[in-house]
Every structure is written in C-alpha cells, then in structure tokens.
Write a protein that binds this DNA or RNA. Structure first.
Lengths: 245, 245
DNA sequence: CTCGAACTTGACTAAACGGTCATCTCCGAC
DNA sequence: GTCGGAGATGACCGTTTAGTCAAGTTCGAG
C-alpha cells in the first residue's frame, strides 16, 4: 500500500552486498552513535538507500553529474526527497557514495582477473577481453557505450565538488595499481623487459582509458574489440604473448 | 562611460580571426536576411560575441558544461543577459559556437604540425612534443592541467544536448583525420609496416586522448612529458624514429 | 538630418534547483 | 504494551536557472 510496486530496474551488476555504508549517511547519523554495537541488523530491511545509489549510477553514467538532479534520482529510485536527505547529507555525498559502491562491485571482478595465480600477462589479456565484453553488455542494457564510470565523472568534476573529484582520483589510482602489480610480476617473470612498472602502468592505463573514452564519445565498440590485440602495444609488445604457464 | 573598462582577460590563443559567425546567431538573425550582401562590415566593431565565446571556453574547460551558467559567462564576458540572447539562441548554441571557435584556433597549428612537407613520423613527433608543451602552458595560465577541450565536453555531453554532442564528435573525428593521413603517408614511405591506417589512427588517438584525460583528472603532466617517447608504442614502434628526410 | 538595423540594457518570468522540516509510521528491544 | 529510533513523507523555502522582452542607444548609409 505505502509502496507502489513500481520496482523493475536492477540493471547491471550486483550492488546489494557491496554497499556497507560506504558513503556514510547524513550528518545526524554521523553526529550520533552510528558505530553502535551492531546487535541491531547492520543491513537494514529497506533498500531505499541502495535504490538511490543504483539510480545515481545509472543516471549520471548515462548522462553526467551536472545533468542529473536530486529530483530525477528520487523519482527513478521511487524515494521521496525527505528520505533522500535522511540517507545522504547532500548530492555530492550521494555521488561519492555511488562512486564507492560502483567501485566495490568492480573490485571482486578485478581481483579475479588479476589473480596472482595466473601468469601476469594472461591477467592483462583477460582484462582486455573483459573490458570489451562488458562494454558490449552495457550497450545492450543502456542503449549506448558508456565507458568508464569513475573516469567520466572524474573528468567532469576535476574542479567543482572537491569530494567527488578526490574520490574519482582515488578510484582511478586504485585501478592503476592492478596494472602496476601485473606489470611488476611480468618483469620479475621475465615476460616483460625491465623498466619502471609505475610508468608503464600509467601508459597502459592511459591507453585503456582513452579507448573507453573514445568508445563513449563515438558510441563505438570497435576500438574495444581491438583491445586484446592492440592493448599490448602500449607496453612495447607487438602482440599477445604466446606462452602458457 | 557606457562600458566600464574592465577588460583584462585574453588568456590563451588568438581567437579574433578565427570566429566568422560559426555558431550562427540567434533565431531572429537566422529568420531574417542574415546572408545579406555583406557590404556592411561583416566583422562587427563590438567584440561582445567574441568575449562570450572566450568566457565560455575558459569556464567550461576549467570546470564543465553543466557547471557553468549563462549568468556566469555573461559576468565574465562583461556582457548583459539580453545581449547574450541577441547573439545566441540558447546556451547550447553558445557552447557549440565555442567548440567551433576553439577548433578553428587549433586547426592552423595542426596544419603546420602535420604539414605534408615533413616526413610523416616527424609530424607525429612534433605533435607529441606540442601536446606536452601546450598543456604545460595551460597549467601555467589556468592553474591546472585541463586536457582536451572538445573531448572533455564531448564525454560529458554524449547524451544531453544533442547539438553539443554532435559537434564534439565531429571535431574529434576531424582531429583523428590528421593522424590518419600521417600514418598513411608513413606506410607509403615505408617508415611504418603496412596495415589499416584508420585503425592505427584510432589506436593512437585513444592513447593520446587517454593521456590527456588522465593528465586532467590527476593534474599530472608526467604522462604528457613521456608522450614523445611512449606515443610510438601505440603504433608498435619501440621508440622515436631516427631517420631524417 | 533621417532612417533602419545592429546592438545594448535591466527588469522580468516560470520553472527547476538543492535542501529543510515537522510529523507520521513501522518495528525490534525491553 | 510501550518506548525509542530508523525510516518515510509531502509541503515548504530561498536561490538559481535559462530564457524573454519592451525600450533604449549607437552608428553607418543615403
């Protein structure tokens, strides 16, 4: 009765488990004892907060931070304005939480792709393939290629809401660290000539992020499909490695 | 008297000559005979229009399309709101004109850098060096690295104002064509192994644009300084070419 | 000098914006 | 059963937004 049964979204990844109050709720919740003994259910029954974050990701990824209003987010999430400000202190707070939540859904995927149990260059190979497949999926669900969420937001918000800018930077660095580790391991294994893995990761990251950005602007998957072949170029390799182990 | 002597901007490039009513003025100007015999001075004495475009570039490049209001642009340009809508039909119109005007200032620079009178790979070498130097200049003038104007706007506006999205796409393609031509010439000259120059240009463009985007997000010039060395990787070359002619 | 068109101006609007708040409902703990 | 706090609600506020407009001013052409 109170809630009209309008829910029919839930488009992309599993968000549910990944959100453990990352964005820390509104001021009230902070000022008082939010770190209470947790005998009470830590994961609340209602999922309004999750729906808000889901809506924020969907809307600001498909358009932009600036083009999405709190009202639009609330409408999509089927949450009233007042409830919104119960969970988040401001729009900036929401977007930071959305960036966090989205990153938390990506992390386990990256952990698997970059598992140390695989040969380092194979990690990259699977990463390239994954990006291409994932953006194809996204295009199917959202109707167009969207590229990288945190980088899109980050490029838009370099200056204006400092908290958002900082969060986007942080995530961008965290992502780069996966590449860095793989490259270092590759050098140690002799699969890659010695050199500065940090610089190489920057270079590779620029290539991948550039491909994603171009794919977004032109709604073109072609570049990403080529990634498993061309991605190696940024490392000075002519093509994908052939060794197995 | 009528105009308080507040002008003291004029920060980056020469915009003056490059703006020949690219953005086509407001509806009134379109509906009536704007294509009149041009015996009257085509370039008007007042530079309000140019100041508006200059302000738009500065403000939306340093922050974003969505974060800049018409009021802010007018204030910076020292132009009243009414005058604004005399020259432009809408905010979108302004931004499209700004993208156009900015591109017009870049074009002669690119024409020189990619002059057919130089060996093709040397064109690229000079392009890489130019990007690095230019962004360093921009950082000096604007206080931070800004990356690529049309790509920043384009990534933000992929969806929302269709005219802006289309213009950004168009410019992005135009830029890529410079690379394409150079790569084709390089292959013809035997300086590069044969292959699809369109795909190679996409690849190289992704790398360069990615480096610029990363430089913007992290306010970091390092990646761009490395461009003259690492740019070649995206083409499968280990380093800058040594030949002269 | 006169005329018309380019240009300028500031006051104006309606809508949208982010954010607030008193009040109510629900539900587990005691 | 009752108590307290998390959650939910819709009316509300002041500001800012893009865009309008009637009434000017400026100025070159005839």
């Amino acid at each position: 009765m109170t809630r009209p049964p309008r829910g029919r979204e839930d488009e992309v990844g599993e968000l549910r488990g990944a959100m453990q109050r990352t964005g820390r709720a509104a001021e009230k919740a902070q000022l008082r004892g939010d770190e209470r003994s947790s005998t009470t259910a830590l994961v609340s029954r209602g999922d309004a907060r999750e729906r808000l974050i889901r809506a924020t990701i969907d809307l600001s990824w498909t358009s932009s931070y600036g083009a999405v209003s709190v009202d639009a987010i609330c409408e999509r999430a089927q949450v009233r304005k007042g409830s919104f400000y119960h969970f988040f202190a401001s729009k900036d707070d929401l977007v930071v939480a959305a960036l966090d939540a989205h990153w938390e859904t990506r992390r386990p995927v990256l952990d698997e792709l970059f598992s140390a149990s695989r040969p380092p260059l194979q990690r990259l190979a699977r990463y390239f393939a994954h990006i291409s497949e994932r953006q194809a999926e996204i295009r199917g669900q959202y109707g167009r290629v969207l590229g990288c969420f945190h980088n899109t937001i980050g490029s838009e918000c370099v200056q204006r809401p400092p908290a958002v800018a900082a969060k986007a930077q942080e995530i961008s660095l965290a992502l780069r660290r996966y590449l860095e580790t793989a490259l270092r391991d590759a050098q140690a294994a002799g699969a890659l000539p010695p050199g500065d893995p940090v610089a190489a990761a920057k270079s590779l990251s620029a290539f991948v992020q550039g491909a994603l950005a171009q794919a977004r602007v032109h709604d073109d998957l072609e570049l990403l499909r080529q990634l498993p072949r061309t991605g190696w170029l940024a490392l000075g390799l002519a093509g994908p490695p052939q060794q197995s182990t």
